[in-house]
Every structure is written in C-alpha cells, then in structure tokens.
Write a protein that binds this DNA or RNA. Structure first.
Ligand SMILES: [Mn+2]
Ligand SMILES: [Mn+2]
Ligand SMILES: [Zn+2]
Ligand SMILES: [Zn+2]
Lengths: 143, 143
DNA sequence: GAACATATTGGTAATGATTACTATTTCTAA
DNA sequence: TTAGAAATAGTAATCATTACCAATATGTTC
C-alpha cells in the first residue's frame, strides 16, 4: 500500500531505488527487495506500469492508463507526454502485419525547458548529448 | 567492418552476444569486448541504432533509418514494423509541450504468426505472457 | 626496412541493477 | 494460544555491460 501510494504521489517515474528512499520515510525498516517484489506484484495486477526505455534502470509509473512519455536527454527526467495515444496507429499496422497486435508504446526524446534554459545547445551539442545519454543512461534527477 | 557487415546481414536485431557469435565465424579470435566497443562507435557515428526497449539485453539494429519495431511477447522476436513513421505526431506534441522535441520511438507488442500457430492463446494467457515477458525479458530466438 | 608513436585488441576484472534465497517475523483463522 | 501460511529483511548470486591494461597491430618518418 505504501509503495503504491508513494508511487502515485510523484510524477517523476522513479526507479526502484528512488522509490525505496521515498517509502523509507514512512517505513524505515523496509528493504529494497520488498520494494522490487511488490512493484512486480503491482505490475502484474495492472496497477503499476514498468517503463523499460533507455537508461540502465527501469522506472515505475503509478499511472497505468495508456499514455506516452517524454524524456529529457540532458537531465534524464521522464514526464507524461501531453497528447493522447493514437490507437489508429495499431489499426493501420494490423492491416500490414500478421502479428496479433496487443499494444504499443511511444517515447519522445527532447530537451526539457529547464535544461534548455541552463545550457542552450547547438545541434552538434545536442547530438553529442544524445550519444552520451545512450551510452551511460542519464543522470539521476532529484525532482 | 565485419561487425557492421554481420549486423546488416540479419534482420533479427541481435543482442551483443548473439552478434558476437556471428562475428566469430569470420574472426574467431575476436573478443566480446571488441564487439561492444565497436558497436558503441558505430552507434556514435550514426550507422547503427541501439534498441533499449523491454528485455534484459540491448539489441542492435544495422538499419539506422527511422522506423518502428514490433516485438513478439511470446518468443521475443523483434522485427521492423511495416508502417512508416508518423512525424506529424512530433508536431502535435510541440504544440502542447515546452520541450525541444528531438525525436520519438515506437514499439508495438504483439504475437508473431509463428507463435500464434504454435500456441493460440486466450486473452488471459496473453496477459500472463505479457507479465512474464516483462518480468524476465524474453527468450532468445535462433532466427 | 628499422624505429618509433599511436590505435586497437583480447582477456579479464569490476560494476551495478535486478533477482534469488532463507531465516525470521507477521498475519490469519480456528 | 497456536499452528500454518504469507511476507519480509538482509544478504548472496546473477548477468549484461564497462573498465582496465598488457600485448599486439597499424601507421609514419626517415
Ligand atoms: Mn507516466
Ligand atoms: Mn529495425
Ligand atoms: Zn532536462
Ligand atoms: Zn513469437
């Protein structure tokens, strides 16, 4: 319950260890293993979504409804993309493929307003950042 | 060169160790580290794409042009989705977000024809497979 | 070609996120 | 209470990826 509550409280799509720190404030004796185990159970029950895009750590999302994400290549922040999913895209693929299509995921990559302000980049710098990000995953943010 | 050639030969989006085995047939003394190192260089030079969707291993794509992917939740196969990318979706997001949008990735999930034939699934079984797949990543395929 | 500087490699160790394991604790229901 | 079941904390194991470095290969200048 506490794990789910804390996950729903934040919009930051935290990784397991970040969520662990949040949960610890309320349950100081909880273990990281318990966080992982229950996140898995919550995913299975459909109350939590596991995000497995770029980076070296999985992120978890307390909002299990279908929506897209937007990741800042500079600071690693992941936000919900403020557009609604286009289900028609699945239909058009069904016409072209023999797969039984179950769903789709979309991740936009970009630079968040804060990072734009802090360090406006040339196109070259942006490409470099993208590479570095792909290489190392992105820094943790303390949002 | 050999690494890039072998990667371009296959349509299976192999993981590093799978590609390592392919390269070894031509360069028996090559090391896995060399494969990783050069894949990184090829990514940086833009000739190879690194796929970081689900599963526990990264996959590599010798086709660096923008395209979508289609993953079978049953066997783990990853194919190119036979539809063209919709760039308009980035435009519509630009209107709604202050991010500087750089690009987007799409992964469809479904069941490939072969798996459908081998083990037709009920909706419940499919959901279960999806969970298991999310949990363990998917089996290696020998395509 | 010899001598040197530079770049790349193979082999192996280190890293780090996730998972597995297990003794102990907590819950449940008679 | 009390026995059995379920969950947990703490720790070990796993395994994909990176880091490291001595050895080898490559290129360059004379
Ligand atoms: Mn979200
Ligand atoms: Mn592809
Ligand atoms: Zn940012
Ligand atoms: Zn399949």
């Amino acid at each position: 319950m506490v794990i789910l509550e804390e996950l729903k409280k934040v919009a930051s799509h935290p990784a397991a260890d970040e969520l662990y720190e949040l949960v610890r404030r309320r349950l100081p004796r909880v273990s990281l293993g318990t966080v992982y185990r229950n996140l898995e159970l919550l995913c299975e029950s459909g109350m939590v979504r596991k995000l497995e895009y770029g980076g070296s750590q999985r992120r978890y999302d307390g909002d299990a409804t279908h929506h897209y994400h937007l990741r800042c290549v500079s600071c690693g922040r992941v936000e919900d993309a403020p557009i609604k999913p286009v289900s028609e895209i699945e239909e058009s693929l069904r016409k072209m493929s023999d797969y039984e299509i179950i769903g789709h995921h979309v991740e936009f990559v970009g630079i968040c307003p804060e990072c734009k302000r802090k360090a406006p980049r040339t196109a070259t710098q942006t490409k470099r950042a993208l590479r570095k990000e792909k290489k190392h995953g992105t820094e943790r943010i303390t949002n």
